[in-house]
Design a protein around this nucleic acid. Structure first.
Length: 271
DNA sequence: ATCCAGGCAGATG
DNA sequence: CATCTGCATGGA
């Protein structure tokens, strides 16, 4: 067991080898988190959680323990998954990112966040995402604003998005929000990868890479590995066999996360 | 100044 | 189907 629900607002994490808050939050799958004196505050949709490390354990205090037990994917044992990622050149990345987990992010937040991420840099679009929340989301009990609901999103105009730094993506976002209103999250969740991708590609501003991010970070398709500029640079150094081992296995998405964190955040040079 | 950032839409072979 | 180009914006 990795973690257990203590009560409606509390989760106790027992196994920190499978839960590294710093690595999880800096692995590019969540953009609304803050450090405080006690640990970390993270938001997903309009839910919030505070993570506090104390010695061999971590305590998560949140607005909805069931939500965050799912969000942090505590039901899955990543130890077994890690043992299956045997590509030699993955070893260093795996050592440093061993406590990363793939989160079950909020569908609307993930879709809109990654549309904004396209041809953008993390620091810049993180600022944009937070401004969208502060201007159009609802203030929660943790002191931060939730990601705006679809109804709240529908009030945001193209001009508003441009003011918040979305640039040429502003019209895509307005269109995407209208399209999201017609989509049933539960229906999408049961589709196989190819059909899910086909549906996601219909959303304005969503191409193959953003679709892959949505599939991995919102629909938990662990075999999908988003290939961005960082990953492209990394795998260019590998043989085609090594590339296949890393990017086409049943847990390619997790392998990709280890690499992304290792390269992009830890600023390592090679795999 | 030029290039780049978790790429995509639209136009053109 | 594959390939090419323009694109908002801020930081290096």
């Amino acid at each position: 067991m990795i973690a257990k629900i203590i009560n409606n607002q509390t989760i106790q994490v027992e196994d920190l080898t499978q839960f590294d808050p710093y690595a999880i939050l800096h692995s590019g799958q969540v953009f609304r988190y803050w450090k405080n004196d006690a640990g970390w505050l993270v938001m997903s949709g309009n839910h919030w959680a505070k993570i506090c490390l104390n010695g061999q354990h971590a305590q998560i205090t949140c607005d909805d323990a069931k939500y965050f037990y799912q969000y942090f994917d505590f039901a899955i044992d990543y130890q077994i998954i890690k043992q299956s990622l045997t590509a030699p050149k993955l070893r260093n990345a795996l050592v440093d990112g061993g406590g990363i987990r793939i989160l079950r992010g909020d569908f609307v937040e993930i879709v809109l966040s990654f549309i904004i991420s396209a041809n953008n840099n993390i620091k810049r679009f993180t600022k944009t995402i937070n401004e969208i929340c502060e201007r159009y989301g609802t203030l929660t009990a943790c002191g931060q604003y939730g990601f705006p609901s679809l109804t709240q999103c529908a009030a945001i105009t193209e001009q508003d998005f441009k003011q918040m730094g979305c640039g040429y993506r502003a019209p895509y976002l307005v269109r995407a929000i209208q399209q999201l209103k017609q989509l049933d999250n539960t229906y999408l969740a049961q589709l196989p990868n190819t059909e899910l991708q086909r549906e996601l590609l219909k959303i304005s501003g969503v191409g193959p890479k953003v679709a892959a991010c949505i599939m991995l970070f919102a629909f938990h398709r662990l075999d999908i590995a988003p290939v961005d500029t960082w990953i492209k640079k990394a795998i260019a150094q590998l043989t085609s066999t090594e590339q296949a081992n890393i990017l086409h296995g049943p847990y390619a998405g997790i392998a990709q996360q280890y690499i992304f964190y290792y390269l992009q955040h830890l600023q390592r040079e090679v795999l």
